[in-house]
Design a protein around this nucleic acid. Sequence first.
DNA 1: GTCTATAGCTTGATAGAC
DNA 2: GTCTATCAAGCTATAGAC
Lengths: 187, 187
Amino acid sequence: MDTRTALLDSAETACRQRGFDGFSYSDMAKDVGIAKPSVHHHFPLKADLALAILERYSDNFHQSLKNISESNQSAGAKLSAYVQLYRNALKGGTCVCLCVAYSAGRASLSDDVVSKLNRFHDFSIDWLEIVFRNASHDHSISHVADPRSEAAATLALMEGAQLVARAASDLVRFDQTVSTLLSRISP
Amino acid sequence: MDTRTALLDSAETACRQRGFDGFSYSDMAKDVGIAKPSVHHHFPLKADLALAILERYSDNFHQSLKNISESNQSAGAKLSAYVQLYRNALKGGTCVCLCVAYSAGRASLSDDVVSKLNRFHDFSIDWLEIVFRNASHDHSISHVADPRSEAAATLALMEGAQLVARAASDLVRFDQTVSTLLSRISP
DNA sequence: GTCTATAGCTTGATAGAC
DNA sequence: GTCTATCAAGCTATAGAC
């Protein structure tokens, strides 16, 4: 594995565990086994690092949603897979997803990172809106109200469920939080 | 106003804007107009400060829920007031509530603060559970599923809605997120 | 209860050799 | 691309005078 990728892995994990202000170039250097100033060769400023982490994360997430769309037929099955994605991102209650970490640490981020973060949110809501719109045709999710609002609520539910589960370091909290949503999905 | 209260005000606001690692004793000292070491007289360690902020916040929140319970008749009206509480806590999109800030910054908090945070979450869920349980009698909220799960989902929805709105610094995001929930309340 | 002074450490970032 | 050496600034925290 190349050094840049190893550094990004280290930084993303640390950021999702402890927040963007909760890890340093020194931590990354120790993790990867190089000297601290060498990290600056790959990411001159921490703002560069913030952007690189988000861009890679964003690309992976987009790919995940594409895979979910392709490998699941009904809207309900797609929604269920989406919830699983956020459940897995918790890594047993030790992490939150990058969006939760960045949203909470918004004040330490540059304007372009914040705007990319908001575009990430929009992308997720757009995808969910289509799912809920399809659900009102295939009836795989019960009593769907306005698809756009349902989509926004679902994204917030995922982020909030992660926060509560992270606070307790307990996946059961996540499961309890999403159970009403999942119960609306037809088998 | 006494110095301790002024310091708590400064710290709570800063924490909700920038996270617990995002402000320092120096910031508080400047805010209140005293020297930095004087802050240590009131809160020797930053861990003491973390606890004091949460305890005061918790007491205020409990009082707010009590007021909501007393001044609203139907379950739907109580839920609507609860949502407003979280909307106001956003302060126009500049802040999140303390629980969101603490949950995201969990790694920097001591064990007793984390356990108090989890008790705060439980208290909120308990209160909401009663609201949803009453709603299945007074029919002021439509299609209520399991009250405990609805309660957990509602807390997560509030925290997630705050995160998304904070990321965008835009209250409209909050309103869009909670609109499906509010539309379930009978007029 | 507030002050000045300071300790001891970590941070992000740079200079310059190899 | 990685290193050693270093910087200025920030942090939490303490000592001791008033």
